[in-house]
Design a protein around this nucleic acid. Sequence first.
RNA 1: GGCCCGUUCGUCUAGCGGCCCAGGACACCGCCCUCUCAAGGCGGAGACCACCGGUUCGAAUCCGGUACGGGCUACCA
Length: 478
Amino acid sequence: MRVRVRFAPSPTGSLHIGGVRTILYNYFMARQNQGAFVLRIEDTDQERFVASALDSIYDGLGWMGLDWDEGPREGGPHGPYVQSERLEIYARHAAELVADRAAYFCFCTKERLEQMRRAQQARGEITRYDRRCRNIDPAEAAERARTESHVVRLKVPEDGVIGIEDLVYGHVEWPLRAIEDQVLLKSDGFPTYQLAVVIDDHLMEISHVFRAEDWLPSTPKHLLVYRAFGWEVPPHAHLPNVLGPDGKKLSKRHGATAVSEFRDAGYLPEALANYLSLIGWSPATEEEVFSLEELVARWRIEHVQRANGRWDRERLDYFNGVWIRRLDDEELGRRLEPFLPAEWDRRVVRETIPLIRERIRTLAEASELIAFLFSDRVQYDPSLLVPKKRAPHEAVTALSRATVALRYLEPFAPPAIEQALGGVASDVEWSVRDLTLAVRAAVTGRKIGPPLYESIALLGRERALERLEGAQELLEAA
RNA sequence: GGCCCGUUCGUCUAGCGGCCCAGGACACCGCCCUCUCAAGGCGGAGACCACCGGUUCGAAUCCGGUACGGGCUACCA
């Protein structure tokens, strides 16, 4: 049987990082089996619908480098791929169930249901629909349904158990008495999730249902719907959730959660995919740096973990650094582009790339490391110019010697600069460490940064000398 | 409350009865390299495998209970 998997987000906000992990696993499954990956939009909740969400999904997945075969914008043999455009299909199927007496019309108002729940709660009973409308005569119910507001509910057997062999969790079963007569079709004519997923997964010939673990408790409802239609249940796999660092559901409270936020913060899609894949799955070896292609080849549902994982920004940062270091100069330059001011000379930027590659963990960190090359003047605290255990006047001497040494240096290149400054250090009896500290402060305005000699060469003789002189004036004025 | 799921270093995980007085990675600490910071190399600390009981010659691995955590319990998904 051809593998067909799907990702079925609700367009209620921006693409969430936890959702991406689920998408990734589905994607791996599809691609490693030469199967089809289907994008279906589950917009059956009119109240929570967010118009921009579809763009966010397309943007996010596109950026991640994930592609799919069938979806709202690309079409396919089982469309439409937006549930709100499939209402007629759900209505027809719901009617079928009613005709088969597997489902029934319910005329109870939301107010009555509310009241009923409150009363059940007060009595310490479990809250569930009391099945009042279940025994209305079908002919009468059909008649009333023509004029009265109603929903369609599933007739759930009173007793027994229903279970599934989950690909991750193994055998799981539920007592039927804990399940209420689920609403399948809402009074606004829209299906509930429970009805729509089952119908769509069936009609779209989905071969494997991979979804987040929070769906596990509603699985019996879906099984009952499959049973009502007489359809075969495809293999299911529930995937452990990605929780916040505190073990609670990952949300804005924990920081960024939208894919776009990570992109804007300078994360690489390779790193995000690599990191995310490793929450809940492991290759069962000690390797852990994987490209998307390698993940497709290596990922196995058998090695998916049952326990929920937690979000760990530090570890993501580490993977981001790994992936940044794997980029060649040209590619890193391209990725850096959106993070650098447009007016910076790209010829100079290109030269800095080998110098900063190992020093940044996110693309966003690059600009501050090399900003000194593009600004007219640098600002800093004069105390930065004076190494520990040295006096300001000594620093003035050292800097002035450095100025002299660099003024006519030929060639004005890193090795010569290194030699020249080394000479200055021994002349003034400073360690190279102290001398470079002072010079670095003078030239870049910072304590840390890319290698000094290269930085000076890139800055150019004129500006380097200017800054060294400026530093001396600053010290003398203090 | 009811139902379901989970529990190996702070975090992500390896482990599917003896190879484990538990291995790797992130983070942390130290040393080396070194013009700073990184990167890299080497080393260290860190898990009585949630707890209790059982099965077994032998359990992190199998079974039961407890505790704790998470999820679901809507005309949300």
